[in-house]
Nucleic acid binder design. Structure first.
Length: 108
DNA sequence: AAGTTGACTTAAA
DNA sequence: ATTTAAGCCAACT
């Protein structure tokens, strides 16, 4: 089988992305930091671009540090609103309220 | 091999 | 809030 296996870096990005709970969002830099590779926000973004539908990765829950959604992907906002995520007047996610926090997940 | 690009980030103006 | 500038790092030309 000659398949193009997914590079390890991307695989790890997807694993973390899958842990983002419904109703929360994470930033590229945050994911990079969580996988022990701070400074790799751009690579995380690149990995997201390569997510195909069959992978079941909730990449719509990933936005940039400003809370801005992916340019050119209008459906993303709808998907997020469907999960209860609210947007600010400027069209960005209200990160203050919806950024993913593991400490709250664990009830701390 | 050197220059460009990008689903990024932070800081400054 | 918006725009610039600089820093960043791997993939792509």
């Amino acid at each position: 089988m000659i398949g193009a296996s997914i590079p390890e870096f991307e695989q790890r990005v997807y694993e973390i992305t899958c842990k983002i709970p419904c109703g929360s969002v994470a930033t590229y830099g945050q994911i990079a930091w969580m996988m022990g590779m701070p400074g790799y926000a751009r690579q995380v973004g690149r990995a997201m671009k390569y997510v195909s539908q069959g992978m079941s990765v909730p990449c719509h829950r990933v936005v940039n540090a400003s809370g801005r959604t992916v340019p050119g992907w209008e459906e993303q906002r709808v998907l997020l609103e469907k999960e209860g995520i609210a947007f600010k007047k400027n069209g960005n996610v209200d990160l203050k309220r919806f950024i993913w926090r593991e400490d709250i997940e664990n009830g701390i």
